[in-house]
Simulated assay, not measured.
Amino acid sequence: MSNVRQLRDKTPDSEKITINLGFVDLGRIDLLVQEGFYSNRSDFIRTAIRNQIESHGETVTRSIERHTMELGLRDFSAADLESAKAAGEILHIKVVGLARIAADVTPELALQTIGSLTVLGALQASADVKKALADRIL
Rank of each mutant, 00 (worst) to 15 (best):
R46A: 03
Y38M: 10
Q34R: 15
N51L: 14
R46G: 00
V33M: 09
A48R: 04
F44H: 04
E35I: 05
L32K: 12
I49L: 11
I53W: 09
I53A: 13
E35W: 02
V33A: 13
D30F: 09
N51M: 05
T47A: 15
F37G: 08
R28H: 13
R46E: 11
G27Y: 02
S39H: 10
R41T: 04
F44T: 02
Q34P: 01
I49Y: 03
A48K: 00
V24P: 01
N40L: 08
L31M: 11
N40Y: 06
V24H: 02
I45T: 02
V33E: 07
A48W: 03
T47S: 15
I53E: 03
I45Y: 02
D43P: 04
R46N: 04
T47R: 12
L31V: 03
I29Q: 02
L32C: 06
L31D: 11
I29H: 01
N51G: 07
E35S: 14
S55Q: 07
L26H: 12
I53R: 00
Q52W: 12
V33K: 14
S55F: 12
I53P: 00
Q34L: 07
Y38V: 13
R50L: 03
R46Q: 05
S39Y: 10
Q34M: 13
I45M: 07
R46F: 04
R41P: 02
S55Y: 13
E35V: 14
A48E: 01
R28M: 14
